[in-house]
C-alpha cells in the first residue's frame, strides 16, 4: 500500500481524461500513452468500475473477471485516508479547483471500491485510517491541500436508480458481458475487413461515436 498520497502522472492523466479536464491539445498524446500502456488500460477499467459503483450501477464483477484484479491492485490506487481536518483558510481559484477535482475523483473511487470489496469479501489488511460504515464522512486531508467529503455510498438508492433507469445501455443489453462480447466481436470483424471495405478507418466511427443513453 502506498504511503505517498501524491497522485502519479498516470493517475492524473486518467482522472483528467475521465473528468473531461484534459486540454484538447493534449488529448491525442495522452490517449496514445494510455492506450499503449497496459497498466494504464487496467487503471482505466478500474476507474470506470469505480464510477459505476459510485453511481450505484449494477456491476457483474465475476462476469468482468475483475474482482480478483481489483483486490490485487486496490492498494496501489489508494490514497491514504484520514479523519476530517479543518479546511485551510484559502481561497481557491477555479483553475486550482480543476487541478484538485481529479484527485478527489480518484480518491472517491478508491474509497467506493474498497467499501464494496471489503463489504463483500472481508478483505483484510486495509488502511487502518479507513473505517467503512464508521461515523462521519471521510476526507482526504493532505497538508496544505483542500479536503473533500466523500458522498455516502448508497447502493441501489432510488434516486440514483431512477436517474439511471433512463439510460439506454450500449447494444441495448443489460448484461455487461454480452455488451463487452459484442464490442469485441464487432472490432474483430471490422479489423478483418477494414482495409477491404470502401469506408476504411471511418468504419470504426460507429464503435467510438455511438454514445449510450443519449
Amino acid at each position: 500500500m502506498h504511503d505517498d498520497p501524491r497522485p502519479t502522472d498516470l493517475q492524473q492523466t486518467l482522472s483528467a481524461l475521465l473528468d473531461g479536464e484534459c486540454p484538447a491539445r493534449a488529448l491525442g498524446p495522452e490517449l496514445d500513452r494510455v492506450l499503449g500502456d497496459p497498466d494504464a488500460r487496467a487503471r482505466w477499467e478500474r476507474y470506470h468500475l469505480i464510477g459505476r459503483l459510485m453511481r450505484s450501477e449494477a456491476v457483474d464483477l465475476d462476469a468482468r473477471d475483475i474482482a480478483a484484479r481489483v483486490r490485487e491492485r486496490i492498494g496501489s490506487d489508494l490514497v491514504p485516508m484520514r479523519r476530517r481536518t479543518r479546511l485551510p483558510s484559502r481561497t481557491w481559484s477555479p483553475a486550482r479547483i480543476r487541478q484538485v477535482v481529479p484527485l478527489a475523483s480518484a480518491l472517491a473511487a478508491s474509497v467506493a471500491v474498497l467499501a464494496v470489496v471489503i463489504g463483500s469479501s472481508g478483505m483484510p489488511g486495509f488502511d487502518p485510517g479507513f473505517e467503512p460504515g464508521g461515523p462521519g464522512p471521510l476526507v482526504a486531508a493532505e497538508p496544505g491541500e483542500p479536503t473533500w467529503t466523500q458522498p455516502q455510498l448508497q447502493p441501489g438508492s432510488s434516486a440514483e436508480g431512477a436517474a439511471l433507469a433512463t439510460a439506454e445501455p450500449r447494444w441495448q443489453q443489460s448484461d455487461p458481458l454480452v455488451r463487452a462480447k459484442l464490442d469485441s466481436l464487432l472490432l474483430d470483424h471490422q479489423e478483418r475487413l477494414s482495409q477491404t471495405g470502401m469506408p476504411g478507418f471511418v468504419s470504426y466511427t460507429a464503435v467510438v461515436g455511438y454514445e449510450s443513453g443519449r
Binding site: 490517449l31 499503449g36 482505466w44 477499467e45 450501477e57 475483475i66 450500449r170 464490442d183 467510438v208 449510450s212
Partner: peptide
C-alpha cells in the same frame, strides 16, 4: 486498442 465507458479496455 479501444477504450469505452463502463467497459473493460478492448
Amino acid at each position: 486498442a479501444c477504450m469505452l465507458p463502463d467497459s473493460a479496455p478492448i
